[in-house]
Design a protein around this nucleic acid. Structure first.
Lengths: 341, 341
DNA sequence: CTGTTAGCGCTTTCAA
DNA sequence: TTGAAAGCGCTAACAG
């Protein structure tokens, strides 16, 4: 079953109409080599008249480059990835490249398969946001695969290919703010500690505590999975204990939202009775009531940078500057306030 | 600059190693035609040994089909489109096809360019979520372009290619609920009326009013643009008038969120003083306080159906049943309640 | 059931 | 500055 065919004009039609050779037409298509201006005009006119459009498959086959880059993210939906895809597509397309997206669902097997899939689509390169794949595997891939850049991850030995956020500093800032507001019993709801960013965020929390002469109280610590429900569960458990606390620092906004819902349910006023801070500055953080204090994750800037990395390192645009580490910003809003005396 | 090359084995290597012809290898790749089981095994073994992967560009070029479908949506981010992309990608990939996404930003020129872009990528077909493109243009495209299916739109003359929601019924249900709760002064915040779905939703609102012997009061009507701010502006204007009303029906959740924020600011309690209803069941509707009563938009089901339409009509999977119109469901939550007597 | 043989539409040396 | 010709890796008749 032929599908593409529509009696589309080919380079051959153009060359005939323009009275030049295939090679010449090809040259003006890739507006590369020297072609006499007059010839170029003739060809352009012919292309116009025929409504000619180069066949990208044929170009790819002959030139060994597809102008496509594969993007593997955990999910295709959600505010975080939405912003990522959107930015990457825009940046790439402005440069005449295009993106193929696929999801790895934070599972090792899926992530590997996703990479294979992108390879099989003959992508020139990849942008990877992977969580389950190990550092070791990524290191191997460096030589066995097409070029790739990692977003939101710092792999030793792959430094130049990483675009990461200073997660540690982000939660350091969050916790420090809470401490500066006078809170001393501070609960922490962590992300899954088998993921590096969750560990980094926890580290920042600890550093801030240490600066105030405190340390992480196991009874005030819970590990969640970055999803809303786990935040609810964590806060409920924390509340069910005897231990007092006046603030809860959550490793992301979803969990903070879950925690806030539980606080409401239990009749605890936020922030009067309990201050809550999130991380990521997801859109939902502005819809929560009260508006969530959080830490901004510059995912758009980082995604754009990942795309630029490729434009520079794969497509040879040397004019692009690359930044590897991005800094988070504290965003105090309404869910945090000084501790009641 | 060659990019793809990695000394990748070709079908030729495989045929040599297996001791068969190119054609035979091709047959087992497309596990189509009759190949003796023993031969197949030999070929498979050779492919395995070489780590062979078919070159999709070459396949596309030779077979006139790329196994790729283009997806043009208004935006790549946001909950609505996120769910769409996610579902489409999953469905397509499970069928061995893949998707190329691009955004039209609800502007006619961008939408047209997006379609051209997808055509130039040699997609076999397209899934279109377009708002600015006219019915007439779409009608023309029917013959001049690759096959496409429309999501969230019903174009006369393109019935079989449309996957749409019964918007009219959705807002009919929303308004009817409000009226059944005893409200009689009901404000309506519409979407942009140059978009069909906004008109349909308004029609449903009017029908419900009519059933209760009411009609649309111009002073209680405002046209927004489906964005949060316009909902805020609309409610503020409404409130600044002399006219009383005890409920506001909004044509989508974003605008409802904006309206709710204004109500809070003005010291109006929701739903005690003012009931508010949205439309779409966007994720944010659950985060609002109080939780927003709304109408569910089954975007995932609809996206999946769009993908199936292609699988059936373009790739020939006759086993798939196609549904063209989907029905919305009312989702009463906490932002609506009986009118105060 | 398997092999031969043309291409698919374009790029890219190499000559002219 | 332009043209001729040899592929890129694979599919698809058509034979056998």
């Amino acid at each position: 079953m032929k599908i593409i065919d529509k009696a589309v004009p080919t380079i051959y039609e153009v060359s005939r109409l323009a009275g030049v050779s295939l090679a010449t037409v090809s040259r003006v298509i890739n507006d590369s080599e020297r072609v006499r201006e007059k010839t170029r005009q003739k060809v352009l006119a012919a292309m116009e008249e025929l409504g000619y459009r180069p066949n990208s498959m044929a170009q790819a086959l002959a030139s060994h480059r597809s102008n496509s880059v594969g993007v593997l993210v955990s999910e295709l939906h959600g505010p975080f990835f939405g912003a990522m895809l959107s930015t990457i597509e825009k940046t790439l397309r402005a440069a005449g490249k295009f993106a193929i997206f696929t999801a790895g669902h934070s599972e090792e097997a899926n992530e590997k398969e996703g990479m294979q899939f992108l390879m099989s689509r003959n992508c020139d390169a990849m942008i990877l946001h992977v969580e389950a794949t190990t550092d070791e595997y990524l290191l191997e891939c460096k030589d066995s695969m097409i070029p790739f850049v990692l977003v939101n991850r710092l792999v030793p030995g792959l430094g130049d290919r990483c675009i990461a956020l200073n997660n540690e500093r982000g939660s350091y800032l969050a916790t420090k703010m809470i401490l500066q507001l006078g809170h001393r019993q501070v609960a922490y709801v962590s992300g899954p500690l088998n993921w590096a960013d969750a560990r980094e965020r926890l580290a920042g929390h600890k550093r801030a505590l240490a600066e105030f002469g405190l340390h992480l109280e196991p009874s005030l610590f819970r590990e969640g999975d970055y999803r809303e429900d786990s935040g609810s569960r964590a806060l409920a458990e924390l509340l069910d204990q005897e231990v007092q606390f006046s603030a809860a620092v959550c490793a992301n906004d979803e969990m903070a939202a879950g925690a806030m819902a539980v606080a409401h349910d239990r009749g605890l006023a936020v922030p009067e009775d309990l201050s809550i801070v999130g991380f990521d500055n997801a859109p939902l953080s502005r819809y929560l009531y009260p508006k969530l204090s959080t830490v901004d994750y510059p995912i758009e800037d980082m995604s754009r940078m990942a795309a630029r990395w490729l434009l520079r390192n794969v497509y040879g645009d040397e004019t692009l500057e690359i930044v590897h580490q991005f800094e988070p910003k504290l965003l105090p809003r309404e869910s945090s306030r000084p501790v009641k005396d």
